[in-house]
């Protein structure tokens, strides 16, 4: 066989040039599409900030909602959201982390365990509005909790529980087996091992997951509408049994009105909501980043 030069296959040469052209075109296409998509999403944020900052001032943050746009504010919505998210955190974090611990550290990895696992994965995919309906039937009507903060918090807790469980399990899974073995070899029980070694080691991961789950709860609207969180609340809730409104509900309410001023108010409330979410997400990313660095 005669040695062929790099340029010897002249017929293949032109087709190779075409193939290179196609490869470049494809790369260009993918990059362009990505940046176009990013631009669209940036447009969304831009449009919100242009409209929202018109009304954004101290008065906006400290006033109750009103029929008159210039008087309206998000005080009750903001306080309601804070109440709601605190209750959700109190309810869902212990249960979620406990479930994750049980599944990873205690439960037998048999058929039953797998069933529970599949069950949780499927719960994570149930539309939020279905949780809202369950909240309406079980908490509002069934248990007679009325349209209160606690109904909303329980509904929202059920909604984000699968997210917390899945994230916590992932965090617990990456704790090296050797740490557990070392503790067991010193005569520690399962709980002692889990409490003093597994939980601290997986803490950053769990915290990240919890923050992301809570930020989802903050933005969810549909379940709250289902359980009938009032849209006009001119007082602040003082306990879990009080009626309430929340930021996303207020936004929905204002967007649904035909007047442009209310749309701008909605944009203002969206800004507040996004700032809260952004702060939470940034915290989560920061924690994850720091934990990754520590691990090396």
């Amino acid at each position: 066989m005669a040695p062929r030069g790099i340029h010897a296959r002249s017929t293949a040469e032109t087709s190779l040039r075409k193939r290179h052209a196609r490869a470049r075109l494809f790369a260009l296409f993918c990059a362009a599409v990505t940046w176009a998509g990013a631009a669209l999403l940036m447009l969304l944020l831009y449009q919100i900030s242009v409209n929202g900052f018109k009304w954004f001032d101290v008065q906006f943050l400290t006033s109750f909602p009103s029929r008159f746009p210039y008087k309206a504010g998000i005080k009750s919505a903001l306080v309601g959201t804070l109440w709601l998210i605190s209750l959700v955190a109190i309810i869902s974090i212990p249960i979620g982390v406990a479930t994750a611990l049980y599944l990873e550290e205690f439960g037998k990895k048999g058929r039953l365990g797998r069933m529970v696992e599949i069950n949780i994965a499927n719960l994570a995919g149930v539309p939020s509005i279905v949780y809202g309906i369950i909240g309406l039937a079980v908490f509002v009507r069934g248990l007679g909790l009325e349209r209160s903060l606690i109904s909303g918090a329980l509904t929202m807790s059920l909604l984000i529980l699968p997210v917390i469980i899945i994230a916590s399990r992932e965090a617990i899974k990456v704790v090296p087996m050797t740490i557990r073995h070392a503790a067991f070899a010193l005569g520690a029980t399962r709980w002692q091992t889990a409490w003093s070694h597994v939980l601290p080691a997986s803490f950053p991961g769990i915290l990240t997951g919890v923050i992301l789950a809570l930020s989802r709860a903050i933005g969810e609207t549909a379940p709250l509408i289902m359980i009938g969180a009032l849209t006009y609340v001119a007082f602040l809730p003082e306990g879990p049994m009080d009626a309430f409104t929340a930021l996303p509900i207020q936004i929905f309410n204002w967007v649904s009105r035909p007047q442009e001023e209310f749309h701008e108010l909605a944009a203002g409330a969206i800004i507040v909501l996004l700032i809260v979410l952004l702060t939470m997400n940034a915290t989560a990313i920061f924690i994850r980043h720091r934990a990754e660095k520590k691990r090396g």
């Binding site: 040695p3 062929r4 030069g5 790099i6 340029h7 190779l16 290179h20």
Partner: peptide
């Protein structure tokens, strides 16, 4: 390779 430097700029 075949009188050609594989790292020459014009080589594909």
């Amino acid at each position: 390779y075949n009188r050609q430097d594989l790292y020459a700029a014009e080589v594909d």
